[in-house]
Amino acid sequence: MERKLSPATIVLYVVLGILVILYLMPAYMALVTALKSPAEISLPTAWEWPSVINWSSFSEALDLLKPNLVNSLILTVCATALSTVLGSLNGYVFSKWTFRGSEIIFTLFLFGMFIPYQVILIPLFQTLRAMNLYGGLPGLILAHVVYGLPITSLIFRNFYAQIPTALIESARLDGAGFFSIYTRVVFPLSIPGFVVTSLWQFTQIWNEFLWGITLTRHSENPITVGLAQLAGGQAVSWNLPMAGSILAAIPVLLIYVFLGRYFIRGLLAGSVKG
């Protein structure tokens, strides 16, 4: 499209400019507040840049949240890896090895994606206790893997649907079986699928709160729970919760800024039928 500086274009840029400011406002507020010393924080001057930059909020918040960050990292990496691998295998079956009733199973899988998690909370809690997994990260990982299956299977199914069936057929004629087709033909083609799925899962699991607070003991709390604790107590020194928020946001934010394209693809796969 040709671009010229018509009044309409000016209006466009002005409107976009205003929107950008509005969208960045909370981020600005978080940063400014985090950089102030507790004494300087007061409601009337909340928007002003700190007179003295106080980096120690970050180191203090990091000290407090370090165990939570480590927990979240272990949790997220494990659960993401497991649910992505399983999802890839499921997607392979759902797209290339359909059998009678596989669509209905797939649809039943998808249903698991949309349930409010409160509805399974009590039995999940009891089951993990019965399995002796309550309180620690393994139980939480299990929950995230299971409830991650619908979305990962969906993304991979839609992704593999794009691999021509002819490719599979010819591999089969060469004598390849179910697993060797997967490892030789499908898997090498699925790197983008893995990226999309694991990014999606990473963000979801990193950001989860309800299970974190109900299923883990204090020393295994993930970052969201740690942050809620930090922010819930003394509302007086707001620099700490703000610095904590920024720390908790950084991993997902980085993923998003640098791998944004894949992230958007994940979003689309999560919501639009392929």
Binding site: C78, A81, L82, P138, I141, P188, I191, F194
Partner: peptide, 17 residues
């Protein structure tokens, strides 16, 4: 190569878990 990477990731995840 990519396959190996994938396996490595899975394996390490299993190990940590």
């Amino acid at each position: 190569m990519l396959k190996k990477l994938g396996i490595a990731v899975c394996a390490s995840a299993m190990l940590t878990a």
